[in-house]
Design a protein around this nucleic acid. Structure first.
Length: 154
DNA sequence: GCCAACGTTGGC
DNA sequence: GCCAACGTTGGC
């Protein structure tokens, strides 16, 4: 099976690279996604073994900081059922979960984080979803885009 | 099923 | 902190 590539955004104040590095086995549940397009990717497309660009949004500057690996494919996001969670969704039923999560494990930190402005000015990256449809928090990346980003990040 | 109002994301 | 883009909700 062809390996596939994704980009996942995180707010470093909430859960960034430093949190991922401190997590057990440097693995975390990628939960809290509450957007249907992103949900569909988590539920239907993203497979164990797929590779992930770990992106810090909302910061100065926003940038790709690391690569990660999907270690568990889509499963119901546990936070949707917990009333104590900010991501609790009272409308979601256990036998018909609305939201999904995957588990990802840190692979490698980029020696040189690749900023959004660099991505925007690099030929071959102009069609990245990150550039064209910036709000999607989980998005597909082509193998060509993956190679270019990793080269820039070395 | 349309679309206005509203809420959120995220770059700047 | 502002605000543009755009996703979601809900009245009709």
């Amino acid at each position: 099976m062809a390996q596939r590539y994704w980009l996942m955004k995180s707010d470093p104040d909430t859960f960034g690279l430093k949190h991922l590095k401190r997590s057990r086995d440097q693995t975390t549940c990628w939960d809290g996604v509450r957007n249907y397009s992103a949900r569909n990717l988590l539920r239907d497309q993203i497979q164990k073994g797929d590779a992930v660009l770990f992106y810090h949004s909302q910061l100065k500057p926003p940038e790709v900081v690391a690569t990660a690996m999907v270690v568990r494919a889509g499963y119901p996001d546990p936070t949707q059922f917990n009333p104590k969670e900010p991501y609790f969704d009272s409308e979601s039923a256990r036998d018909a979960p609305r939201w999904y999560a995957v588990d990802i494990q840190l692979d490698a930190e980029l020696a040189n984080p690749v900023t959004l402005s660099r991505i925007k000015e690099t030929p071959g990256l102009e069609n990245m979803v990150l550039v064209r449809r910036s709000r999607l928090s989980v998005q597909p990346v082509t193998s060509e885009e993956w190679k270019i980003i990793l080269r820039l990040g070395r």
